[in-house]
């Protein structure tokens, strides 16, 4: 759709082939195959128990798959070294209460050897990106839910990820703040050209954000349908075309 056709860029950012996973004899995922292009936003949509979080954990490299093949940037997962360029955003903001906002953002950089001054500069840049540079020295408990969510986003972006994985990242926010976070995310995603894969059970969220929606079905988790969304942006949930897509996807679920 918007992917340039040059050969080098044609290598998918993420490639899953026939991924399967068992937990204690229970089949959680079966035959998941999916390619995600660079800079693409893909939603994994499904009801609870369809293994969408498991799938995200496998892609993040935190959970090994039982079968199938995972490739990142064309490289097999086993030989891929740059896992730190894959950021993971959780359902909760998970800000460490004993760290200042700036130190929370810098947290993501501390896994690698780096100079403290450099980490501070990068953290402040990331905070500027989410328009919270005035709060660098505040404590997490002093911030509202939406602001905390933006800090968590800054913490994910500070490592300059190629891929951003999100597990229902804004589900704890009120609808209005959530809509703001969606626009924020899209703005930064376009600016940095990040590949985004996110999990949601909210059809509207999937339609507002994603270039493609992967509909999963449960027991065992597998792909029911992959639906490209060609809607223009920004997508407003109340627009006719958007709400029509939402309706169609609800039917498919």
């Amino acid at each position: 759709m918007n992917a340039p056709s040059s050969l080098a860029l044609a290598v998918p950012a993420l490639s899953l082939k026939d991924i399967g996973k068992h937990f204690d004899g229970l089949e959680a995922l079966r035959g998941i195959s999916l390619d995600v292009a660079k800079g693409e936003i893909v939603a994994l949509l499904g009801t609870s128990g369809c293994g969408k979080s498991t799938l995200l954990n496998i892609v993040s490299g935190l959970l090994p798959a039982d079968r199938g093949e995972l490739r990142i940037d064309g490289q097999p997962a086993a030989s891929f070294r740059d896992w730190r360029r894959i950021a993971y955003m959780f359902q909760e903001d998970r800000l460490l209460p004993w760290r200042s906002i700036r130190a929370n953002v810098a947290f993501g950089l501390e896994a690698e050897r780096s100079r403290r001054a450099e980490r501070i500069v990068k953290a402040e840049q990331a905070l500027r990106l989410v328009e919270l540079d005035g709060f660098a020295r505040a404590w997490p408990h002093q911030l509202s839910g939406g602001m905390r969510s933006r800090v968590a986003l800054a913490r994910s972006l500070v490592v300059e990820p190629q891929i951003l994985l999100m597990d229902e990242p804004f589900s704890k926010l009120d609808p209005q703040t959530r809509a703001q976070m969606h626009q924020e995310l899209l703005r930064l995603q376009r600016f940095k050209n990040i590949t985004v894969v996110f999990v949601t059970h909210d059809v509207e969220e999937a339609v507002v954000l994603a270039d493609r929606v992967v509909v999963l079905e449960p027991r065992p988790g597998r792909i029911r349908a992959i639906k490209p969304l060609d809607l223009p942006r920004p997508r407003i949930p109340t627009d006719l075309a958007v709400s029509e897509q939402v309706r169609q996807l609800r039917m498919a679920l």
Partner: peptide, 19 residues
């Protein structure tokens, strides 16, 4: 949750302990 967060950034066991 905080330990998982540290692990998602690929922190070592030592780093998880200290941080």
């Amino acid at each position: 949750q905080f330990i998982d967060l540290a692990r998602s950034f690929r922190m070592s066991r030592w780093q998880v302990l200290v941080k």
